[in-house]
C-alpha cells in the first residue's frame, strides 16, 4: 500500500510539473516526425527563448484537439500533408493569422486567402523508374494504368495521405469516373499488394520486384545521403510526371494556428519563424524539400534534378476531393 501511494504521488508530481508551464512557451501538435522539425525548433528556442513543447502523432491529433475543446493547450499544428491540413480547417479547429511577415514569405497560391492555413514546404509526387531500362522521356500519372506496366508497379498504401492527395488531384483534373478507371488500371498493374513506405518501393525496384514506383521527391535526396540506401537510389531515375500536360502533383506540408491557442503571440512568432528564410533554408537543406519561401533556393541535390512544371491547380481545389478520393480507393479495393 505504501508503495502504491508513493508511486501515485510520484505520478501526481510529475504530472503537475508538466502542467506547471513555463512563462514563455509554445505548444505544437505535430504530424511531422520530430527529427524533421527539431533543427528549426531548436533554432527558434535559441533565438527567442520560447520553450517549444511537442506532441507527435501520425494520426488522430485533430480528433484530440476537437475533444479538448476550448481548453486545448495546442497553439500550432504542423501537418505533413494537405489532407490533415484541410481536415483541421474544415472542422473549424483553426483561427486566421494576421501576419504581414508570413504573407510576404509565402506566395499567395500556397496559403489560404482567409489566412487560416499556410504551406511550409512542397514535395513532388514523383514516378521512380528502374535504371534497367532507359529514363522515360515523358511519363504521366495516367500512364501507370496502361498495360505496358503490367506487373511492374510498386506503391505504398493507397490510403496514405500522399496517395490520397494524388488521387484527389486526378479527380480534380480528370473527373471521378475517369479516375476510378485509372485506379483500377493501376491496381491491375501492381507487382505486389501496396505495402511499406516510399523508400521501400525504390528498394523493391532495385531488387527487381518492380520497375516503377510512386514516391515523394525528398526521399530520393534522403536516400542518397544514407549509406545503406544509396544503392537503392542509384538504381532508379527520378521522373517528374505530366510535364507536357497539367504538371506534376505537388503536396505540401503546412501549419495552422489552433483555434483556442493559449499562447497566441508565441504561436505567431513560431509561424513567422517557420516561414522565414532561416527556417526555410533548413527545410531545403536538411529535408530536401522545396521551400515555399521564394527567396530560399533548393538544395544542390534537389537542384540537380532540374526544373519542373508543377500542377498550378489551387491546393484547396485538390483537397476538396480528398473524401471522394478515399472512397474511390475503397471502392476499387486498392489496398486489398
Amino acid at each position: 500500500m505504501k508503495k502504491l501511494l508513493s508511486i501515485t504521488s510520484a505520478i501526481a508530481i510529475s504530472c503537475s510539473s508538466l502542467l506547471a508551464q513555463a512563462a514563455e512557451e509554445v505548444n505544437i501538435y505535430s504530424y511531422r516526425q520530430p527529427f524533421l522539425i527539431e533543427p528549426m525548433l531548436k533554432d527558434f528556442e535559441k533565438e527567442t527563448g520560447v520553450k517549444v513543447n511537442v506532441v507527435f502523432a501520425k494520426k488522430g491529433l485533430e480528433e484530440r484537439i476537437e475533444r479538448e475543446g476550448k481548453f486545448s493547450p495546442a497553439d500550432v499544428v504542423l501537418t505533413s500533408d494537405m489532407i490533415s491540413l484541410f481536415d483541421l480547417v474544415d472542422r473549424q479547429l483553426v483561427q486566421p493569422v494576421n501576419s504581414k511577415t508570413i504573407n510576404e514569405n509565402i506566395p499567395v497560391h500556397l496559403r489560404d486567402p482567409d489566412n487560416q492555413w499556410y504551406s511550409l514546404t512542397m514535395r513532388v509526387r514523383n514516378i521512380y523508374s528502374s535504371k534497367r531500362s532507359d529514363k522515360p522521356v515523358d511519363i504521366n500519372y495516367e500512364d501507370l494504368a496502361s498495360s505496358k506496366f503490367k506487373g511492374k508497379i510498386c506503391t505504398r498504401s493507397g490510403k496514405h495521405p500522399y496517395n490520397i492527395g494524388l488521387v484527389a488531384s486526378m479527380i480534380a483534373h480528370n473527373g471521378e469516373a475517369q479516375t476510378r478507371l485509372w485506379l483500377e488500371g493501376v491496381k491491375a498493374n501492381l507487382a505486389r499488394r501496396p505495402q511499406g513506405n516510399d523508400r521501400a518501393q525504390v528498394k523493391a525496384i532495385k531488387e527487381g520486384v518492380c520497375d516503377v514506383s510512386l514516391g515523394n521527391s525528398y526521399y530520393f535526396g534522403k536516400m542518397m545521403e544514407n549509406d545503406d540506401q544509396k544503392a537503392w537510389a542509384d538504381a532508379v531515375y527520378i521522373n517528374f510526371p505530366n510535364q507536357k500536360t497539367v504538371g506534376s502533383h505537388v503536396n505540401i506540408s503546412g501549419m495552422v494556428m489552433a483555434k483556442y491557442a493559449p499562447n497566441k503571440d508565441n504561436a505567431l512568432r513560431l509561424m513567422e519563424y517557420l516561414a522565414s528564410e532561416e527556417a526555410q533554408s533548413i527545410y531545403a537543406r536538411d529535408n530536401m524539400e522545396y521551400p515555399v519561401n521564394p527567396k530560399v533556393p533548393v538544395s544542390d541535390t534537389v537542384a540537380a534534378w532540374g526544373e519542373f512544371k508543377a500542377d498550378p491547380l489551387p491546393i484547396s481545389d485538390i483537397a476538396a476531393n480528398r473524401t471522394k478520393a478515399q472512397r474511390l480507393l475503397d471502392e476499387v479495393k486498392f489496398d486489398l
Binding site: C15, P73, P262
Partner: peptide, 10 residues
Amino acid sequence: IGLIFSGSAI
C-alpha cells in the same frame, strides 16, 4: 487549470 486529466500522463 487546463487539461489536467487528458493533457497529462494520467
